[in-house]
Design a protein around this nucleic acid. Structure first.
Lengths: 190, 190
DNA sequence: TTTCCTAACTAACGGTTGTTAGGCAAAGAT
DNA sequence: ATCTTTGCCTAACAACCGTTAGTTAGGAAA
């Protein structure tokens, strides 16, 4: 390698462009321009456009799983597990705002097979939350509701942070995670 | 008119395609095919592709404003106003799931001037929520937090329903609105 | 009947898309 | 000193993009 990590530069440009303009509205030549090379030269480093999207989507899916799975596997009480998991989930989004946005909005442009793989991983991840929510309801620490509804409302609410959070703002990823966990556990009413 | 409402058929097709594939990945010929005409014939009914997007975005923005503004102008207590507004907001999404999804995700593909107009309307709408939240905190019925943070966390959480709700499912738009309002007001803990 | 209008058509425009082929210069290995 | 690899280039491909121009068929209005 002449320049260290030219491939990583391409992925960094793709992260920025896919997350702001969207996958379909971003061209390979756009990515190349950001890196300072011609469009065709991208193919010396990468298989193709969809492969970049796939790698970025997996990168995000891994980040969420690696952050939350150990918490769910710990012997903490359900309310503490959920609080930590929610905070960690939001923190992962805030710390990887571009990749997370791509994960949430652009995975549907993958091939059918890869789309299926993403859906499977997402379902497995969601199951982690559903289990601890059901456990908390059984132990009467959470209000009794349909755990399927609560888990999906919860996760989609947390994911909303990707639509408005900007790293340049005053809130740190950690304080943001705490805010979301607190608000969703205790509600707005006092 | 030979067929009644051919223009509306075009908009219906655009609603379905823009909301599932996204604006950039939808071609004028795709829309035409859905209606049963050729791509060029679309231009007998519509100014152009971006004009369709603009009309759909305004359609959604109007639906939210018209549903929530009268509630906020009523003389109810802040917690009741907020509960009704949240429920109504979610109900509007569920009842217009395609247009709402376009409003949330595709408005950024508009021209700069139209993008600015959308942002202004959204800010005005968000202000309605911020005001009632601040009022509720002042009257000590809501836990004291930064109203800016709470309003944006709240609205982005409610908007999350657009990512998973399907009209074919078991939940009605109204029960969905009640679920969200209850959960976000009182939290998961009992 | 003749004229006009409408909604559709085909053809084409200039430009862009993701991607491949082939070449060339520099650097590393033998 | 020669060979091989690497990283980029230009040129080009076939397909597709939003949109315009010109045409045609059919019904309404005169």
């Amino acid at each position: 390698m002449s320049t260290p990590g030219k491939k990583e530069q391409i992925y960094a440009a793709a992260r920025a462009l896919f997350s702001t303009r969207g996958y379909a509205a971003t061209t390979v030549r756009d990515i190349a321009k950001e890196v300072g090379i011609r469009g065709a030269s991208v193919y010396a480093h990468v298989d193709g456009k969809e492969r970049i999207l796939w790698d970025l989507v997996i990168e995000a899916a891994d980040a969420f799983r690696d952050a939350v799975r150990p918490i769910m596997a710990s012997p903490l009480a359900p309310d503490e597990k959920l609080r930590l998991a929610m905070a960690e989930h939001v923190t992962v989004i805030a710390r990887n705002i571009e990749t997370s946005t791509i994960y949430f909005h652009e995975w549907q442009h993958l091939s059918p097979a890869r789309k299926r793989a993403v859906r499977d991983r997402r379902d497995t991840y969601e199951q982690l939350f559903r289990a601890v929510i059901a456990e908390g309801m059984k132990k009467r620490v959470f209000a009794k509701r349909d755990p399927r509804h609560v888990s999906i409302v919860l996760l989609s609410s947390l994911n909303g942070v990707s639509t408005w959070f900007r790293p340049s703002g005053p809130l740190s990823p950690e304080s943001l995670g705490a805010l979301y966990a607190d608000l969703l556990l205790k509600g707005i009413l006092r």
